Amino acid sequence: MGLKWSILIKLFIVQYLSVLCLAREKEDGFDFFYFVQQWPGAYCDTKHSCCYPKTGKPAADFGIHGLWPNYDDGSYPSSCDPDSTFDKSQISDIMTSLQKEWPSLSCPSSNGYRFWSHEWEKHGTCAESQLDQREYFEAALKLKEKVHLLKSLKKAGIEPNDELYSLESIKKAIEDDIGFAPFIECNKDSGGHSQLYQVLVCVDTDGSTLIECPTLPRGRCGSEIQFAKF
Rank of each mutant, 00 (worst) to 15 (best):
G157Y: 01
G192R: 00
Y136R: 15
G2A: 13
E119A: 07
R114H: 08
Q90A: 00
E163S: 09
L196W: 04
A42G: 15
G179C: 08
L22A: 08
I225A: 14
G41F: 09
E135T: 07
D176P: 04
Q198E: 14
E212T: 15
L149C: 05
S92Q: 10
Y52I: 04
I211S: 04
G179V: 07
W39M: 14
Y136G: 10
E159S: 02
E138N: 03
D28S: 11
S223H: 12
P53G: 01
I91G: 02
P217S: 05
L210N: 03
S166L: 06
R114F: 02
E159P: 01
L164T: 08
C221Q: 14
P160T: 02
F137A: 00
I211L: 01
F86M: 02
D93K: 00
F137G: 00
Y136T: 08
T55Q: 01
Y165M: 04
G191V: 07
S194L: 08
G63C: 08
T125I: 01
E212S: 14
K155R: 14
D31N: 14
P69C: 11
S110A: 12
T209F: 04
K144Y: 09
Y16Q: 09
L22C: 10
D177M: 14
A228P: 15
Q37N: 06
P69L: 15
Y165E: 07
L8E: 00
Q99N: 03
I178Q: 07
L150S: 06
D132S: 03
I94N: 01
D28A: 12
L210W: 08
S152I: 11
N161L: 14
P217T: 04
L20K: 13
I184E: 06
N161D: 15
F86C: 00
V36P: 13
W102Y: 02
F33R: 12
P182M: 09
D206P: 10
N70T: 09
S223W: 11
L67Q: 06
I174E: 12
K54D: 00
L210R: 05
C50K: 03
L143P: 05
S208Y: 13
A42V: 15
E138V: 07
E128L: 03
I170F: 08
D31E: 12
I64L: 04
F33Q: 13
I184S: 09
L164W: 08
P58H: 00
